[in-house]
């Protein structure tokens, strides 16, 4: 095999295989062509965004001056951030519990945890609308000052996000060799120390994947948010939904582009901050 001639490319070095690289190229191309179009069209002068008519920054100025659009974006980021934080913690705890303990009706409990994933979004949206209205939480929370008035939406997002985190983290934990834990305890570490120094680092890829999933779900959720939001708590997807039913305007493209840039920068920063720790543990 030609690959084996190159230094450092063993039989397991799939990352350097040509066919995989080509496959990656094709899949990423498919994933990104629509996105690139979107970004390109945010610089288009044509109002309907169907044909290319010329280059402009006007759409960004317009989006920036559209206070309701900006407000919706800030709401969305705020909700996604808090909901991801809570969901990741709750999800990881449940995953640890399911992985570590044997208890009666465990199968039933797992099915129960899976419910938010199984249920169509629209049912959950309507169920939550009923619930928030009937308990008076809708009126009470919507009247609170920002960001407390986002509580209902955050609560709803956590409820559907954390089981996803639990699933992802748990499928990571399945591969954990418990002898490591015992070894740590034998060496005199407390339960708490073992948890932080052994289990959490092992969980990390699962936590990152789970948090990314939760963030994605929260940021993109339209259906459930639609039913739980009020006039003061519009999120970006809800705003977009009401705007694009009559066609996407380049202004929306511009706002989306900004949102992508913000989230990418935030994620890269987070990864950078986390990186030294990671290598220290390795």
């Amino acid at each position: 095999m030609a690959e084996q001639m190159k230094p450092g490319s063993g039989p397991l070095d799939y990352g350097n295989r040509l066919w995989l690289k080509i496959l990656f190229g094709v899949i990423f191309f498919m994933l990104y062509v629509p996105i690139i179009t979107l970004v390109a069209f945010s610089f288009n002068t044509d109002r309907r965004g169907i044909v290319w008519r010329g280059f402009t920054f006007d759409n960004y100025v317009k989006a920036w001056n559209n206070s309701s659009l900006i407000e919706a974006m800030i709401n969305s980021l705020m909700i996604a951030f808090i909901a991801t934080l809570i969901a990741t913690v709750l999800g990881a705890m449940v995953a640890l519990m399911l992985w570590r303990f044997r208890f009666p009706f465990k199968g039933a409990y797992e099915a129960f945890m899976g419910l938010p994933i199984v249920i169509p979004e629209i049912c959950m949206g309507v169920a939550l609308l009923l619930f928030f209205n009937e308990t008076g939480m809708m009126t009470a929370v919507v009247a609170m000052p920002w960001p407390l008035n986002l509580s209902n939406i955050i609560i709803a997002h956590v409820a559907f996000c954390f089981p996803f985190v639990a699933i992802v983290v748990r499928s990571r934990l399945v591969g954990f060799n418990r002898q490591l834990e015992e070894a740590s305890k034998d060496l005199g570490a407390s339960e708490w120390q073992t948890f932080w120094k052994v289990i959490v680092p092992f969980m990390m890829p699962g936590l990152v994947a789970g948090a990314l999933l939760a963030f994605t779900l929260s940021l993109d959720d339209f259906v459930i948010t639609f039913f739980t939001s009020g006039p003061e708590t519009v999120t970006f997807p809800v705003k977009v939904y009401s705007l694009v039913r009559r066609g996407v305007s380049p202004e929306i493209n511009a706002a989306s582009t900004v949102l992508i840039v913000i989230t990418v920068v935030a994620t890269v920063l987070a990864m950078k901050l986390q990186a030294p720790q990671k290598s220290g543990k390795g």
Binding site: F131, E134, T135, G136, M137, T139, A140, V141, A143, M144
Partner: peptide
């Protein structure tokens, strides 16, 4: 039907307009 749940959140709803 909803009395029970309502009572649970009575604390939260004591913020009338």
């Amino acid at each position: 039907l909803l009395k029970g749940t309502g009572a649970m959140f009575a604390g939260l709803t004591l913020l009338p307009r």
